[in-house]
Each structure stands twice: as C-alpha cells, then as structure tokens.
Amino acid sequence: MYVFKNVSIGLILVLLVSSTALAHKVNVFAYAENGMVYTESYFSDGRKVIDSTVEVFDAQNNKLLLTGRTDKNGEFSFKIPEATGLRIVLTASMGHKNEYLLSEDEVRDAIGIAKLPEKSPPEKMETEKRQAPPEKATQIYDDRLELLMERIVEEKTAPIMKKLLKIEERMQKPSFQDIIGGLGYIIGLMGIGIYFKYKRKS
C-alpha cells in the first residue's frame, strides 16, 4: 500500500497546484453593443486565441452570415448583419472548437429597434393632452433624448458587461467540486470493479 500512499500524496499536491493552473479548452464569448458584436476568445488557461476562424450563423436557419479571424488579442468584432439570434462558432487549431449563442433580444437591443415603437405612443398622448409646445418639436426632442440616454446607459453599463463576461468565463472553468467529484466517481467505479471481480475464497 506504500505506493498508493505516495501516489495519493501526489494527487493532493496536484489538486493544490491545479487551482491556479488550468488546462486546455477553448471558450468564446460575445456581447452586442451600438450595432456591433464584440467577441472574445480564450483558452481555458486564459491565453488568447490568436488568428483563428470565427463563423457567424443565423441561429434560426443556420445560414452562414459572415466569417472572420481573431486578432492578436483574441478579439473579433463585426457589424450586426441581421436582427436575429446569432450563433458564433470559433474553430481554433488542433481540434478545438466552441460556440456562443447571442439571443435575438440582445441583438435587437444593440441595434436599437426593439422597444422604440412601443415606447413612443404613450408619450405622444401625454403631450397631446397637455397641448404644450408644438408636437413636432417635442417629437424630435424625445427622439434625441432617447438616443442620448441610450448612449449614456450603454457607456455606463459597459464595465458591468465586461465583468459579467468575466464571471461567465470563470463559471466555465473546472471547479474544486468538479475535481473531487470526478475522483469520487473513480473510487466508486473501483468499488464496482472489485465487487464483480471478487471471487470468494472457499
């Protein structure tokens, strides 16, 4: 049993080391903003995925909309081609591949055509009731205000979006529980193996 003691000490050391060093899998993340879609790609150890193919598909009918390559920061951005959900597929070298689904709402919000028509009618009614300044002027004023506000909100929320992406990225990494769970499965399988191979000595 001496060997197993040695090996298990080794395994524990490995577990301690592995919390900082993580391995090989490719991740792609995307967010839409101001009519553009920004994508970021990492290997799961945090290295950027450089010069790899990104393909953008229509999420509904799987039509290829555009392709591109990641730059030296692992980023790739493009103008929103259509107001639909987008499936962004990253193919890195050596058989690594992953995808990210950008929902239709997110894309529509970024183009700015989502809620405009719904919002304006009640505002108009209000101005009509008050019969204050000429309608046309308020309309232009409202539109500009809305655009301005949208831009400000987007600017203010950009850091939050980045942070959310980071969190999402962290969730993709193997956790300590995953590792312990996996080792537990292996011990369980060993038990099953021993159970079935065990021959009762008479």
Partner: peptide, 13 residues
C-alpha cells in the same frame, strides 16, 4: 483506479 485518478487530474496541470 489510482492511475485513472492521476490521468483525470493531470489534464488540469
């Protein structure tokens, strides 16, 4: 089983 465990965690290094 021990070597399976070693293989399982080795990919994290």
């Amino acid at each position: 089983a021990v070597l399976t465990s070693a293989f399982f965690v080795a990919s994290l290094i």
